[in-house]
Simulated assay, not measured.
Amino acid sequence: MKTKTDISDLIVSTDTLATLLGFTRQRINQLAKEGILEKQAAGRYPLMKNVQRYIEYLRTGVKDKGDGDEEAQAKYWEEKALHEKAKRETAELKLGQLKNQLHDAADVELVMTNMLATFRSRILSIPEKVSPKVLGVKNLSEISDAINTEVLEALAELSEYDPGMFAGVGVDETEDGQPIPEDLEIGGSTAEIDDQ
């Protein structure tokens, strides 16, 4: 018996192709209906062409509808480009966080809430601090100066922005994916709100 070495024109049955690809007969028929595999006749498939078509389908996720189907290939590459763009944007955002130029919205909310709560507490304590100083003072200029000094101190505290205040807020991860413990120190003082 002579063995055939050229398989380029070999036609196989549904069962043979199913066994070769590791599918059931039904799956082979379904792949043929979807245009992934090519049928030559009922239950007859060109072996080499269909193995190539199926490998191309696995590689690109695009059904091979012949050499003229450039639209499907264009769509595949468009999707791939969008995916790569999303990956690049994610990497840029991560880099911005590492450089302390970009902060998580939850971290910003926590820091700003703490800053504003401290500021509010500071403003509300002004009458208590100023009252004893101005008690009995008749000069309006001295009363105004005492109030003005306390207000300016409170505003100066609010204006002290430091990007480092956002570093370490919440649970971050190091390069090796290990969590960093939450650090609630903000600007050298704890994030707790004092009721003075």
Rank of each mutant, 00 (worst) to 15 (best):
I28H: 02
A106I: 14
G187D: 05
A105Y: 11
A191G: 12
G43N: 14
I186F: 01
S121R: 00
G22C: 06
K138F: 00
V151R: 06
T174I: 01
K65Y: 09
H83N: 12
L21Y: 01
V134I: 10
N114A: 14
H103N: 07
E71L: 13
F119W: 04
L184I: 10
K99E: 14
K129F: 00
I11T: 08
M165W: 03
D9H: 10
V62R: 11
T5I: 14
V62Q: 13
A32Y: 04
V12P: 01
L124S: 08
T60K: 08
E92M: 15
V108A: 13
D176H: 06
R25M: 12
D172Q: 08
M48G: 09
S131F: 04
Q196A: 12
A106Q: 15
R122D: 05
E150K: 01
G187W: 05
K133V: 06
F119S: 06
E128C: 02
I126E: 03
T14L: 06
I143N: 01
N139F: 02
A105E: 11
E38A: 13
Y54M: 08
L20H: 05
E173H: 08
E185T: 12
E160P: 05
R120N: 09
D64P: 02
D195Q: 12
A105S: 14
D107C: 12
E109L: 12
T19Y: 03
D176W: 03
E70K: 10
D69T: 07
S121D: 00
G96C: 11
E150N: 01
M48L: 15
D183G: 04
L93E: 08
T14E: 13
A91H: 11
D183T: 05
T16F: 06
G66S: 13
L20P: 00
T149M: 08
S125H: 02
D107V: 11
N114R: 13
H83E: 14
G96D: 08
K138M: 05
V12W: 03
A41P: 07
L93T: 08
S13E: 14
I123R: 00
E175V: 09
L152I: 07
I11N: 09
A191P: 07
N29M: 05
G61D: 07
Q30Y: 15
E56S: 10
K80Y: 11
E109D: 13
A146S: 03
M112H: 09
K4W: 15
K87V: 09
T149L: 10
Q101Y: 03
D69K: 07
G66A: 10
T118H: 08
R59W: 11
K87M: 12
D6G: 12
